[in-house]
Amino acid sequence: MIIDLKRFISTRRSEWDECERTLDRMEDEPRLRLSIEEAQRFHYLLERVAADLNQINTAAADPAIRAYLESLLSRGYSEVQETQRLPVFRVMAYWLAFTFPQTVRRHFGALKLVLFAFFAGVFFGGFALMLDPEAKPVIIGFDHLMGSPSERVAEEEANRGSNLEDGKSTFSAFLMTHNIKVSIFTLALGMTFGIGTIINLFYNGVILGAVGFDYVLAGETKFLCGWLLPHGSIEIPAILLAGQAGLVLGQALLFRDGDKGLVSRMRAIRKDLLTLIGGVAVMLVWAGIVEAFFSQYHEPVLPYSVKIGFGMVQLIGLIAFLMFAGRKHTLSLNEEEPK
Score class of each variant (00 low, 15 high):
residue 191 M to H: 08
residue 207 I to N: 01
residue 211 V to W: 05
residue 202 F to Y: 09
residue 182 V to H: 02
residue 219 G to R: 00
residue 212 G to N: 07
residue 185 F to L: 11
residue 187 L to H: 12
residue 199 I to R: 05
residue 215 Y to F: 15
residue 202 F to Q: 07
residue 204 N to A: 02
residue 204 N to R: 12
residue 220 E to S: 10
residue 189 L to F: 12
residue 190 G to A: 03
residue 219 G to Y: 06
residue 186 T to M: 13
residue 194 G to Y: 11
residue 190 G to R: 15
residue 182 V to E: 01
residue 219 G to V: 04
residue 190 G to P: 09
residue 190 G to V: 08
residue 213 F to A: 14
residue 213 F to T: 08
residue 184 I to Y: 14
residue 202 F to S: 01
residue 194 G to S: 03
residue 183 S to G: 08
residue 217 L to K: 15
residue 202 F to H: 14
residue 217 L to I: 07
residue 192 T to V: 04
residue 188 A to F: 15
residue 195 I to W: 09
residue 194 G to P: 06
residue 182 V to Y: 06
residue 197 T to K: 10
residue 202 F to W: 11
residue 188 A to Y: 11
residue 219 G to T: 04
residue 199 I to S: 00
residue 208 L to R: 02
residue 202 F to C: 05
residue 204 N to L: 10
residue 209 G to C: 11
residue 195 I to E: 04
residue 195 I to K: 08
residue 220 E to P: 06
residue 205 G to T: 07
residue 205 G to R: 06
residue 215 Y to P: 00
residue 216 V to A: 14
residue 215 Y to L: 07
residue 181 K to A: 11
residue 192 T to G: 13
residue 216 V to Q: 04
residue 190 G to H: 13
residue 184 I to D: 02
residue 195 I to R: 02
residue 213 F to D: 03
residue 204 N to W: 12
residue 210 A to Y: 03
residue 200 N to E: 12
residue 200 N to W: 14
residue 191 M to T: 15
residue 181 K to D: 03
residue 193 F to A: 15
residue 218 A to V: 09
residue 183 S to W: 06
residue 213 F to V: 07
residue 207 I to P: 09
residue 218 A to F: 02
residue 188 A to L: 15
residue 198 I to A: 13
residue 212 G to S: 11
residue 189 L to A: 02
residue 199 I to A: 08
residue 218 A to C: 02
residue 188 A to G: 14
residue 201 L to M: 01
residue 184 I to F: 14
residue 205 G to Q: 14
residue 185 F to D: 14
residue 190 G to I: 13
residue 214 D to P: 11
residue 196 G to S: 04
residue 192 T to P: 10
residue 184 I to Q: 12
residue 201 L to K: 05
residue 209 G to W: 10
residue 196 G to K: 02
residue 199 I to H: 00
residue 215 Y to M: 10
residue 186 T to S: 13
residue 188 A to D: 02
residue 206 V to A: 03
residue 183 S to N: 07
residue 202 F to E: 03
residue 186 T to G: 04
residue 196 G to L: 11
residue 211 V to L: 03
residue 194 G to M: 03
residue 212 G to W: 06
residue 206 V to N: 00
residue 182 V to T: 13
residue 219 G to E: 01
residue 211 V to A: 09
residue 181 K to W: 01
residue 197 T to C: 08
residue 196 G to D: 06
residue 190 G to E: 08
residue 201 L to V: 00
residue 205 G to H: 08
residue 198 I to T: 08
residue 196 G to R: 04
residue 207 I to M: 14
residue 211 V to G: 01
residue 198 I to W: 07
residue 200 N to M: 11
residue 200 N to Y: 13
residue 216 V to W: 13
residue 191 M to K: 09
residue 210 A to M: 03
residue 214 D to A: 06
residue 212 G to C: 02
residue 206 V to E: 01
residue 206 V to L: 12
residue 204 N to T: 10
residue 219 G to P: 09
residue 196 G to Y: 06
residue 194 G to R: 06
residue 207 I to C: 03
residue 185 F to R: 12
residue 214 D to T: 01
residue 209 G to E: 05
residue 201 L to W: 04
residue 213 F to R: 14
residue 214 D to G: 07
residue 213 F to Y: 15
residue 201 L to A: 09
residue 181 K to E: 05
residue 193 F to R: 13
residue 207 I to Y: 10
residue 204 N to E: 09
residue 195 I to H: 03
residue 214 D to E: 02
residue 203 Y to M: 15
residue 186 T to F: 04
residue 201 L to T: 09
residue 192 T to K: 06
residue 197 T to A: 04
residue 211 V to K: 05
residue 207 I to F: 06
residue 213 F to C: 01
residue 188 A to Q: 10
residue 192 T to N: 06
